[in-house]
Amino acid sequence: MMRISRRTFALGIIGTCCLSFTPTIAIAQADREREERWQQLVSYLFDDREVVPTETLIKIEAPARAQDAALVPITLTMPEKDKIKSVYLVIDDNPVPLAAHVTFGPAADAGSLQMRVRIDTYTNVHAVAETKEGRLFSAVAFVKASGGCSAPSGPSDLEAMKGMGEMRLRLSEPSQKGKSTAATLMIRHPNFTGMQMNQLTRLYTPPRYIEKMTVTYGDQTVLDVAGDISLSTNPAIGFNFVSDGRQSMKVVASDNKGGRWESAFDVSANN
């Protein structure tokens, strides 16, 4: 795991471009194209609000080269967590760049978030933090991956859909009252991207993905997650919540085809 700076990325390009380009031109061009792409996305996703690069408000960790393009683990950290209202994960060159928008509720500890995503090609991945004041700050990592969005969800569509909606919640350690506890929420769902072709029928499996997940703790919201096709099959999200000793954490998930699932988990401190 490493954070890729723009400079490291540029060095990578020197290594990979054919020799008819001089390295400097290649760097400049690739850099400029990626920056142009990002500016397009900013205007499309954030309605031309200013997005300011930050070294402090949000950090993104991603593998420099994806081992499995259909399941790339991403970690976001927000050191000044009390300032953060929500985060966006944007995979610039994916067909649907916005992978997820996660809004933190009062029961959340917004210090970190883990997600697993599909990455289709060599691309910048941007993490954007929205502060409670409504300002946007970004961090970026460059990831080399290939074919993540067309990689199938399972041996067959039917197989991939087995157990759809089943959920698990795993705590990294027993929760303690008043303390932040790390949790991973897993849900079985194929998250079909719409780019997965069945060779026999020559048809693409229609996109079917988790569109919304709401995690509540007692009567308070922990997270609201808006997802899309870039979340990996069987989406999993790692987050933190502050335990107050109450019993139950509830999750409601729904997909774009009208599927809706609910689960409740006992996360009490003495469990």
Partner: peptide, 12 residues
């Protein structure tokens, strides 16, 4: 649960 497996070999 049989998930997306990219490849048997690395084509990156």
């Amino acid at each position: 649960r049989r998930e997306a497996m990219a490849l048997g070999f690395c084509l990156c």
